[in-house]
Nucleic acid binder design. Sequence first.
DNA 1: GATACGAATTGGACTCTGTCTAATCCCATC
DNA 2: GATGGGATTAGACAGAGTCCAATTCGTATC
Lengths: 143, 143
Amino acid sequence: MITDHSRENLVSVLRQRGIGPTHQRMEIAHVLFSRMEHLSADQVLCLVNGRHAETSKATVYNTLKLFVETGLVREVIVDAAKVFYDPNTAPHHHFYDVESGEITDIDAEAVTIVGMPALPPGKVAAGMDVIIRVRPAAPAPGA
Amino acid sequence: MITDHSRENLVSVLRQRGIGPTHQRMEIAHVLFSRMEHLSADQVLCLVNGRHAETSKATVYNTLKLFVETGLVREVIVDAAKVFYDPNTAPHHHFYDVESGEITDIDAEAVTIVGMPALPPGKVAAGMDVIIRVRPAAPAPGA
DNA sequence: GATACGAATTGGACTCTGTCTAATCCCATC
DNA sequence: GATGGGATTAGACAGAGTCCAATTCGTATC
Ligand SMILES: [Mn+2]
Ligand SMILES: [Mn+2]
Ligand SMILES: [Zn+2]
Ligand SMILES: [Zn+2]
Protein backbone atom coordinates (compact mmCIF):
# COMPACT_ATOMS: atom_id res chain seq x y z
CA MET A 1 0.00 0.00 0.00
CA ILE A 2 1.62 3.18 -1.22
CA THR A 3 0.63 6.13 0.93
CA ASP A 4 3.12 8.72 -0.27
CA HIS A 5 2.06 9.93 -3.70
CA SER A 6 4.80 12.49 -4.07
CA ARG A 7 6.70 12.52 -7.33
CA GLU A 8 9.96 11.57 -5.60
CA ASN A 9 8.40 8.56 -3.92
CA LEU A 10 6.74 7.33 -7.11
CA VAL A 11 10.10 7.57 -8.86
CA SER A 12 11.68 5.34 -6.24
CA VAL A 13 8.77 2.88 -6.29
CA LEU A 14 9.19 2.46 -10.05
CA ARG A 15 12.98 2.26 -9.80
CA GLN A 16 12.70 -0.50 -7.19
CA ARG A 17 10.98 -2.61 -9.84
CA GLY A 18 13.49 -1.71 -12.52
CA ILE A 19 10.98 0.49 -14.33
CA GLY A 20 12.38 3.66 -15.87
CA PRO A 21 10.27 6.51 -14.49
CA THR A 22 9.13 8.25 -17.66
CA HIS A 23 6.65 11.10 -17.60
CA GLN A 24 3.80 8.89 -18.89
CA ARG A 25 4.52 6.08 -16.43
CA MET A 26 4.56 8.55 -13.58
CA GLU A 27 1.20 9.94 -14.60
CA ILE A 28 -0.31 6.47 -14.84
CA ALA A 29 1.13 5.41 -11.48
CA HIS A 30 -0.18 8.62 -9.97
CA VAL A 31 -3.70 8.00 -11.28
CA LEU A 32 -3.69 4.48 -9.85
CA PHE A 33 -2.04 5.06 -6.48
CA SER A 34 -3.67 8.34 -5.58
CA ARG A 35 -7.11 6.83 -6.04
CA MET A 36 -6.58 3.22 -4.92
CA GLU A 37 -9.61 2.23 -7.00
CA HIS A 38 -10.16 -0.58 -9.48
CA LEU A 39 -9.79 1.12 -12.87
CA SER A 40 -10.13 -0.15 -16.42
CA ALA A 41 -7.52 0.70 -19.05
CA ASP A 42 -9.96 3.11 -20.64
CA GLN A 43 -10.61 4.84 -17.32
CA VAL A 44 -6.88 5.20 -16.78
CA LEU A 45 -6.52 6.66 -20.27
CA CYS A 46 -9.26 9.20 -19.65
CA LEU A 47 -7.98 10.18 -16.21
CA VAL A 48 -4.40 10.59 -17.40
CA ASN A 49 -5.52 12.77 -20.30
CA GLY A 50 -8.09 14.65 -18.26
CA ARG A 51 -6.68 18.10 -18.84
CA HIS A 52 -5.14 17.78 -22.28
CA ALA A 53 -4.12 14.66 -24.19
CA GLU A 54 -0.56 13.67 -23.40
CA THR A 55 -0.51 9.86 -23.27
CA SER A 56 -1.56 7.42 -25.99
CA LYS A 57 -3.73 4.36 -25.68
CA ALA A 58 -0.77 2.16 -26.68
CA THR A 59 1.31 3.55 -23.83
CA VAL A 60 -1.45 3.02 -21.30
CA TYR A 61 -1.72 -0.64 -22.32
CA ASN A 62 2.08 -1.05 -22.45
CA THR A 63 2.44 0.48 -19.02
CA LEU A 64 -0.38 -1.41 -17.34
CA LYS A 65 1.07 -4.67 -18.67
CA LEU A 66 4.49 -3.65 -17.35
CA PHE A 67 3.05 -2.78 -13.95
CA VAL A 68 1.28 -6.16 -13.80
CA GLU A 69 4.40 -8.08 -14.82
CA THR A 70 6.46 -6.36 -12.17
CA GLY A 71 3.82 -6.86 -9.48
CA LEU A 72 3.07 -3.18 -9.02
CA VAL A 73 -0.62 -3.68 -9.73
CA ARG A 74 -2.85 -6.68 -10.13
CA GLU A 75 -5.43 -7.62 -12.76
CA VAL A 76 -8.99 -8.23 -11.61
CA ILE A 77 -11.13 -10.30 -13.95
CA VAL A 78 -14.75 -10.10 -12.89
CA ASP A 79 -16.46 -8.79 -15.99
CA ALA A 80 -16.44 -10.29 -19.44
CA ALA A 81 -16.15 -6.86 -21.03
CA LYS A 82 -12.90 -5.51 -19.58
CA VAL A 83 -10.01 -6.00 -17.20
CA PHE A 84 -9.67 -3.88 -14.08
CA TYR A 85 -6.32 -2.87 -12.60
CA ASP A 86 -5.98 -2.98 -8.85
CA PRO A 87 -3.27 -0.94 -7.07
CA ASN A 88 -3.88 -3.00 -3.94
CA THR A 89 -1.49 -5.96 -4.23
CA ALA A 90 -2.06 -7.32 -0.73
CA PRO A 91 -3.91 -10.67 -0.87
CA HIS A 92 -7.60 -9.89 -0.94
CA HIS A 93 -10.89 -10.73 -2.60
CA HIS A 94 -13.73 -8.78 -4.17
CA PHE A 95 -17.38 -7.95 -4.08
CA TYR A 96 -18.62 -7.18 -7.58
CA ASP A 97 -21.93 -5.42 -8.14
CA VAL A 98 -23.11 -6.93 -11.40
CA GLU A 99 -25.43 -4.01 -12.10
CA SER A 100 -23.31 -0.98 -11.28
CA GLY A 101 -19.93 -2.59 -11.98
CA GLU A 102 -18.67 -1.41 -8.60
CA ILE A 103 -15.79 -3.43 -7.12
CA THR A 104 -15.11 -3.54 -3.35
CA ASP A 105 -12.23 -5.16 -1.53
CA ILE A 106 -12.54 -8.01 0.97
CA ASP A 107 -9.56 -8.42 3.28
CA ALA A 108 -8.08 -11.89 2.74
CA GLU A 109 -7.02 -12.09 6.39
CA ALA A 110 -10.66 -12.29 7.42
CA VAL A 111 -11.46 -15.23 5.17
CA THR A 112 -10.33 -18.85 5.42
CA ILE A 113 -10.99 -21.53 2.87
CA VAL A 114 -11.43 -24.98 4.39
CA GLY A 115 -11.21 -28.24 2.47
CA MET A 116 -9.49 -26.96 -0.61
CA PRO A 117 -8.77 -29.98 -2.81
CA ALA A 118 -5.23 -30.82 -3.88
CA LEU A 119 -4.01 -29.12 -7.01
CA PRO A 120 -4.25 -31.20 -10.18
CA PRO A 121 -1.07 -33.26 -10.62
CA GLY A 122 1.75 -31.41 -12.32
CA LYS A 123 0.24 -28.03 -11.51
CA VAL A 124 1.46 -25.34 -9.14
CA ALA A 125 -0.67 -22.60 -7.61
CA ALA A 126 -0.46 -19.16 -9.20
CA GLY A 127 -3.12 -17.36 -7.18
CA MET A 128 -6.67 -17.55 -5.93
CA ASP A 129 -9.56 -15.22 -6.62
CA VAL A 130 -12.79 -15.14 -4.67
CA ILE A 131 -15.49 -13.03 -6.23
CA ILE A 132 -18.80 -12.44 -4.52
CA ARG A 133 -21.28 -11.21 -7.07
CA VAL A 134 -23.91 -8.94 -5.57
CA ARG A 135 -26.73 -6.75 -6.82
CA PRO A 136 -28.71 -3.91 -5.27
CA ALA A 137 -31.40 -5.23 -2.91
CA ALA A 138 -34.86 -5.02 -4.44
CA PRO A 139 -36.92 -2.34 -2.66
CA ALA A 140 -39.35 -3.89 -0.16
CA PRO A 141 -42.60 -4.73 -1.99
CA GLY A 142 -45.30 -2.17 -1.19
CA ALA A 143 -42.78 0.31 0.19
CA MET B 1 -26.34 -32.98 -14.51
CA ILE B 2 -27.95 -34.28 -17.69
CA THR B 3 -26.93 -37.86 -18.38
CA ASP B 4 -29.40 -38.76 -21.10
CA HIS B 5 -28.35 -37.05 -24.33
CA SER B 6 -31.09 -38.55 -26.47
CA ARG B 7 -33.00 -36.18 -28.71
CA GLU B 8 -36.24 -36.83 -26.83
CA ASN B 9 -34.69 -36.01 -23.47
CA LEU B 10 -33.05 -32.80 -24.74
CA VAL B 11 -36.43 -31.73 -26.13
CA SER B 12 -38.02 -32.15 -22.72
CA VAL B 13 -35.13 -30.41 -20.94
CA LEU B 14 -35.56 -27.37 -23.18
CA ARG B 15 -39.36 -27.47 -22.89
CA GLN B 16 -39.11 -27.50 -19.07
CA ARG B 17 -37.42 -24.12 -19.32
CA GLY B 18 -39.93 -22.79 -21.80
CA ILE B 19 -37.41 -22.91 -24.64
CA GLY B 20 -38.76 -23.96 -28.02
CA PRO B 21 -36.62 -26.88 -29.17
CA THR B 22 -35.47 -25.75 -32.59
CA HIS B 23 -32.95 -27.71 -34.60
CA GLN B 24 -30.15 -25.23 -33.86
CA ARG B 25 -30.88 -25.11 -30.13
CA MET B 26 -30.88 -28.89 -30.01
CA GLU B 27 -27.50 -29.05 -31.71
CA ILE B 28 -26.02 -26.49 -29.32
CA ALA B 29 -27.47 -28.25 -26.27
CA HIS B 30 -26.11 -31.53 -27.58
CA VAL B 31 -22.63 -30.09 -28.00
CA LEU B 32 -22.67 -28.75 -24.44
CA PHE B 33 -24.28 -31.65 -22.57
CA SER B 34 -22.62 -34.52 -24.39
CA ARG B 35 -19.20 -33.11 -23.58
CA MET B 36 -19.76 -31.50 -20.17
CA GLU B 37 -16.75 -29.27 -20.83
CA HIS B 38 -16.23 -25.54 -20.47
CA LEU B 39 -16.60 -24.20 -24.01
CA SER B 40 -16.30 -20.72 -25.48
CA ALA B 41 -18.90 -19.38 -27.91
CA ASP B 42 -16.44 -19.84 -30.72
CA GLN B 43 -15.77 -23.45 -29.76
CA VAL B 44 -19.50 -24.13 -29.68
CA LEU B 45 -19.85 -22.56 -33.11
CA CYS B 46 -17.08 -24.72 -34.56
CA LEU B 47 -18.34 -27.93 -32.94
CA VAL B 48 -21.92 -27.36 -34.06
CA ASN B 49 -20.78 -26.70 -37.61
CA GLY B 50 -18.14 -29.40 -37.60
CA ARG B 51 -19.50 -31.34 -40.55
CA HIS B 52 -21.05 -28.59 -42.65
CA ALA B 53 -22.17 -25.10 -41.66
CA GLU B 54 -25.73 -25.08 -40.43
CA THR B 55 -25.84 -22.60 -37.54
CA SER B 56 -24.84 -18.94 -37.58
CA LYS B 57 -22.70 -17.05 -35.13
CA ALA B 58 -25.70 -14.89 -34.19
CA THR B 59 -27.76 -17.94 -33.31
CA VAL B 60 -24.97 -19.39 -31.18
CA TYR B 61 -24.74 -16.15 -29.19
CA ASN B 62 -28.55 -15.83 -28.98
CA THR B 63 -28.89 -19.40 -27.79
CA LEU B 64 -26.08 -19.29 -25.25
CA LYS B 65 -27.57 -16.13 -23.77
CA LEU B 66 -30.97 -17.82 -23.63
CA PHE B 67 -29.49 -20.88 -21.94
CA VAL B 68 -27.77 -18.68 -19.35
CA GLU B 69 -30.91 -16.66 -18.65
CA THR B 70 -32.95 -19.81 -18.12
CA GLY B 71 -30.30 -21.41 -15.92
CA LEU B 72 -29.51 -24.26 -18.31
CA VAL B 73 -25.83 -23.34 -18.40
CA ARG B 74 -23.61 -20.99 -16.46
CA GLU B 75 -21.05 -18.41 -17.54
CA VAL B 76 -17.50 -18.81 -16.29
CA ILE B 77 -15.37 -15.67 -16.33
CA VAL B 78 -11.75 -16.57 -15.73
CA ASP B 79 -10.02 -15.18 -18.77
CA ALA B 80 -10.07 -11.61 -20.01
CA ALA B 81 -10.32 -12.78 -23.61
CA LYS B 82 -13.56 -14.76 -23.64
CA VAL B 83 -16.46 -16.20 -21.69
CA PHE B 84 -16.78 -19.93 -21.16
CA TYR B 85 -20.11 -21.72 -20.92
CA ASP B 86 -20.46 -24.41 -18.28
CA PRO B 87 -23.13 -27.12 -18.60
CA ASN B 88 -22.53 -28.03 -14.95
CA THR B 89 -24.95 -25.82 -12.99
CA ALA B 90 -24.38 -27.47 -9.62
CA PRO B 91 -22.56 -25.09 -7.24
CA HIS B 92 -18.86 -25.54 -7.84
CA HIS B 93 -15.57 -23.73 -8.32
CA HIS B 94 -12.72 -23.88 -10.82
CA PHE B 95 -9.07 -24.49 -11.36
CA TYR B 96 -7.82 -22.42 -14.27
CA ASP B 97 -4.51 -23.18 -15.95
CA VAL B 98 -3.33 -19.75 -17.04
CA GLU B 99 -0.99 -21.21 -19.65
CA SER B 100 -3.10 -23.86 -21.35
CA GLY B 101 -6.49 -22.27 -20.64
CA GLU B 102 -7.74 -25.56 -19.23
CA ILE B 103 -10.63 -25.30 -16.74
CA THR B 104 -11.30 -28.01 -14.14
CA ASP B 105 -14.20 -28.26 -11.71
CA ILE B 106 -13.91 -28.18 -7.91
CA ASP B 107 -16.89 -29.62 -6.07
CA ALA B 108 -18.40 -26.89 -3.89
CA GLU B 109 -19.45 -29.46 -1.26
CA ALA B 110 -15.82 -30.08 -0.41
CA VAL B 111 -15.03 -26.43 0.25
CA THR B 112 -16.16 -24.16 3.07
CA ILE B 113 -15.51 -20.48 3.34
CA VAL B 114 -15.08 -19.26 6.90
CA GLY B 115 -15.29 -15.66 8.01
CA MET B 116 -17.00 -14.22 4.99
CA PRO B 117 -17.69 -10.55 5.74
CA ALA B 118 -21.21 -9.18 5.64
CA LEU B 119 -22.43 -7.99 2.27
CA PRO B 120 -22.18 -4.26 1.67
CA PRO B 121 -25.34 -2.53 2.91
CA GLY B 122 -28.15 -2.51 0.38
CA LYS B 123 -26.68 -5.40 -1.57
CA VAL B 124 -27.92 -8.96 -1.95
CA ALA B 125 -25.79 -11.96 -2.95
CA ALA B 126 -26.01 -13.12 -6.56
CA GLY B 127 -23.35 -15.81 -6.53
CA MET B 128 -19.81 -16.60 -5.55
CA ASP B 129 -16.92 -17.69 -7.74
CA VAL B 130 -13.70 -19.20 -6.47
CA ILE B 131 -10.97 -19.48 -9.07
CA ILE B 132 -7.65 -21.13 -8.32
CA ARG B 133 -5.19 -20.07 -10.95
CA VAL B 134 -2.53 -22.71 -11.61
CA ARG B 135 0.29 -23.24 -14.05
CA PRO B 136 2.30 -26.29 -15.10
CA ALA B 137 4.97 -27.12 -12.52
CA ALA B 138 8.44 -26.13 -13.67
CA PRO B 139 10.50 -29.24 -14.39
CA ALA B 140 12.87 -30.03 -11.52
CA PRO B 141 16.14 -28.14 -12.06
CA GLY B 142 18.83 -30.48 -13.35
CA ALA B 143 16.31 -33.12 -14.35
C1' DG C 1 25.72 23.07 -27.29
C1' DA C 2 25.83 19.32 -30.78
C1' DT C 3 25.73 14.27 -31.67
C1' DA C 4 24.57 9.65 -31.02
C1' DC C 5 21.89 5.80 -29.48
C1' DG C 6 18.89 2.77 -27.04
C1' DA C 7 14.51 2.94 -25.00
C1' DA C 8 9.87 4.72 -24.85
C1' DT C 9 6.01 6.59 -27.19
C1' DT C 10 2.82 7.07 -30.88
C1' DG C 11 -1.06 6.87 -34.55
C1' DG C 12 -3.36 3.96 -36.79
C1' DA C 13 -4.30 -0.35 -38.75
C1' DC C 14 -5.66 -4.66 -37.23
C1' DT C 15 -7.81 -8.76 -34.58
C1' DC C 16 -11.14 -10.67 -31.83
C1' DT C 17 -15.29 -11.15 -29.08
C1' DG C 18 -19.67 -9.94 -28.97
C1' DT C 19 -24.03 -7.04 -30.42
C1' DC C 20 -27.53 -5.40 -33.47
C1' DT C 21 -30.78 -5.18 -37.26
C1' DA C 22 -33.53 -5.78 -41.05
C1' DA C 23 -34.59 -9.38 -44.20
C1' DT C 24 -35.71 -14.03 -44.58
C1' DC C 25 -37.06 -18.54 -43.07
C1' DC C 26 -39.62 -21.95 -40.58
C1' DC C 27 -43.56 -24.04 -38.97
C1' DA C 28 -47.72 -24.67 -36.50
C1' DT C 29 -52.37 -23.45 -37.07
C1' DC C 30 -56.39 -22.44 -39.60
C1' DG D 1 -52.07 -23.41 -49.10
C1' DA D 2 -52.50 -18.91 -46.82
C1' DT D 3 -51.29 -16.48 -42.44
C1' DG D 4 -48.52 -14.87 -38.58
C1' DG D 5 -45.18 -14.87 -35.10
C1' DG D 6 -41.03 -16.56 -33.53
C1' DA D 7 -36.29 -18.08 -34.96
C1' DT D 8 -32.44 -17.64 -37.88
C1' DT D 9 -29.30 -15.25 -40.70
C1' DA D 10 -25.61 -12.27 -43.07
C1' DG D 11 -23.22 -8.78 -42.43
C1' DA D 12 -22.49 -4.25 -40.52
C1' DC D 13 -21.06 -2.51 -36.32
C1' DA D 14 -18.85 -1.59 -31.56
C1' DG D 15 -15.36 -1.94 -28.02
C1' DA D 16 -11.24 -3.96 -25.89
C1' DG D 17 -6.87 -4.95 -26.75
C1' DT D 18 -2.56 -5.88 -29.87
C1' DC D 19 0.94 -4.79 -33.14
C1' DC D 20 4.21 -2.24 -35.84
C1' DA D 21 7.04 0.95 -38.17
C1' DA D 22 8.12 5.72 -37.60
C1' DT D 23 9.16 9.24 -34.44
C1' DT D 24 10.51 11.28 -30.21
C1' DC D 25 12.73 11.33 -25.79
C1' DG D 26 16.36 11.09 -22.32
C1' DT D 27 20.73 10.70 -21.46
C1' DA D 28 25.56 10.02 -22.18
C1' DT D 29 29.53 11.54 -24.63
C1' DC D 30 32.25 14.72 -26.93
MN1 LIG E 1 -0.21 15.36 -14.66
MN1 LIG F 1 -25.72 -33.42 -33.26
ZN1 LIG G 1 -9.01 -5.03 -5.00
ZN1 LIG H 1 -17.42 -25.81 -14.15
